[in-house]
Structure formats: C-alpha cells, structure tokens
Amino acid sequence: MNGSTHASSSSSPRLARIDGAEGGRRHFRYFDYVMVAFVAILLLSNLIGASKLASLGGVTFGAGILFFPVSYVIGDVLTEVYGYANARRCVWAGFFALVFMAFMSFVVVALPPSQGWGGQASYEAVFGSTWRIVIASITAFWAGEFVNSFVLAKMKLLTGGKHLWTRTIGSTVFGQAIDSLLFYPIAFLGTWTTGQVLTVMVTNWAMKVAWEVILTPATYAVVGWLKRREGVEVFDEKTNFSPFATARPLRD
C-alpha cells in the first residue's frame, strides 16, 4: 500500500481511502462479478426487451426500460465502489459486447433460412433492428455511461463521500439525459414527428430517473456490502477521466 492510502474520514474507519488511479490497478475480490452482471443486464435488456412495446395503465413504453436502468444502477455501484477507472473498463466491455451483438444479429438474420423453417419473419421482427437504432443504442449507451460515471465521481469528491443518494440520482439525471438526447433523435427523427420524439424522450428519461430513485435503498445495500468486503473507499482525486485512458501497471 502506498502513501496515498489512509483512513477515510468520510466513511467507516475500517475502510482505507485510496485514489482512483491506484484503484484502477488494484485487484478486487468482487469486481469481476459486478462487471459480468453489468454487461449481462445491458445485453439482455437490449436483446429481449427492446423489440416489445408494452402498455400499463394506458402508458405505452418499450419493455426494455423496466430492466435497462438496472445497468445504470450497477454503473453507479461500479464507480462508487471501484472508482472511475474500473467503471471505464466496464463501459468499454459493454460497448464492444453491444457491437458484437449487433454484428452477430445482422449476420444471423441475413443467413438464408433452411427450407421448411418458417421462423424467418418472426426472427427478423425480433432481431432485425435497423442500422439507425443500432447506432443510436450503442452511441447513447457509450456517452451516457461515461457522463454518468464522471458526474458521480466528481460529486463524490464534492460531497466528501457523504450523501450517496445525491450522486447516484444526480449522475443518473445527467447520464440518462445524454442517453435520451442521443438515442431518440438518431433512431427516430424523420420517422416520427418532432413532437413524438420529444415526448418519448422526456417520458423515458423521467421513467429511468424514477427507477433510480426507487432503487436507491438497494443501491445503498449493495454499495455498503461491497465496500465492507473490499475494505477500501475510492476517491478519484488524481484520475485521468478521458474515456480512452488506460491504467498504468503497479510498480514494485
């Protein structure tokens, strides 16, 4: 442990405070599991939920919105517990997973169906997203997640690690705003009216932020559990916030 490690005055005294740059080079016990959960929920919410329109109480929405915000909650957990550098790794992992999923969907849908197999039309309806929606989804995720992590990490410094709810909700407000501002115009402007794009954009942004508020107790529980077991409190005081930066290896 280098000289940057000391007891955190803003959290449990049992947690050692480390800088985000050190955290990005450190091995954590549960980081890999959280990253897998993040990528899995991201892919499944886009693959299973994105193609279905649902209606509850007269409100129509994409079914994926019920689960996709969970990836933002896990993104908050990643940044809060493991720091921006480790969250950055997960965003890139999710980005390339989405790119591969889109490529695989395109190839599989384009393959000529076997004679006698009657599922091609249904398969195309579920997995045959247009190029605009694919580009919109990948671009919005990438930008929105980085904004989410950046805002949370900066707010953690401003709050001294206190009031977790302010940064999880605050980062989601900004991250989901960027996500929605990119996704809906790229995917649907010109196909839908401008009014429809604006209405759905604002409605879905509000629903995603509401999900974050509802899941705040769960976020507190997961963050607390992970911090106690990892034994550290990460503050991104010297972190390089470029999305393209890489962590330098630890020196002996």
Rank of each mutant, 00 (worst) to 15 (best):
S114Q: 10
R228W: 00
A125R: 13
V234M: 08
G128S: 08
V39S: 11
N46R: 00
L43M: 10
T159M: 14
W225E: 01
S45K: 01
T239N: 05
V134L: 08
V173I: 15
V232G: 00
P249Y: 05
G75K: 02
G118E: 10
F174W: 11
V200T: 13
L66Y: 04
A143N: 04
L15V: 09
M35G: 12
M35W: 07
P13I: 02
R229L: 01
T191N: 12
G195C: 07
V108M: 14
P185A: 13
M1N: 06
A50L: 09
V99N: 09
F188I: 10
V134F: 05
Y33K: 05
A97K: 12
G20I: 06
D179T: 15
Q196R: 15
Y220E: 01
L98P: 05
R26I: 05
K162L: 06
A153N: 03
K227E: 15
E230S: 01
A187L: 09
I41Y: 00
L98F: 02
G83K: 08
I178C: 15
T216L: 14
R25P: 09
F174Y: 08
G160T: 09
S12V: 00
W165P: 08
T166F: 13
H6Y: 13
W142P: 01
P13Q: 02
L15H: 09
S242I: 04
V77W: 06
Y184D: 03
V197K: 10
S180M: 11
Q196I: 10
A110W: 10
F28E: 12
A221T: 00
K208N: 09
E230N: 02
K156C: 04
Q196K: 15
A21K: 13
T191P: 00
P217M: 08
N46F: 10
K227H: 02
K162Q: 13
I186W: 10
V147T: 14
A85G: 10
P249L: 07
V36F: 15
L164H: 00
Y72K: 00
S149N: 11
V173C: 15
N240V: 01
H27K: 13
L56E: 04
L44I: 14
K52G: 02
L226Y: 02
R88W: 05
A136G: 13
G75F: 03
S11G: 10
G224Q: 08
F174N: 05
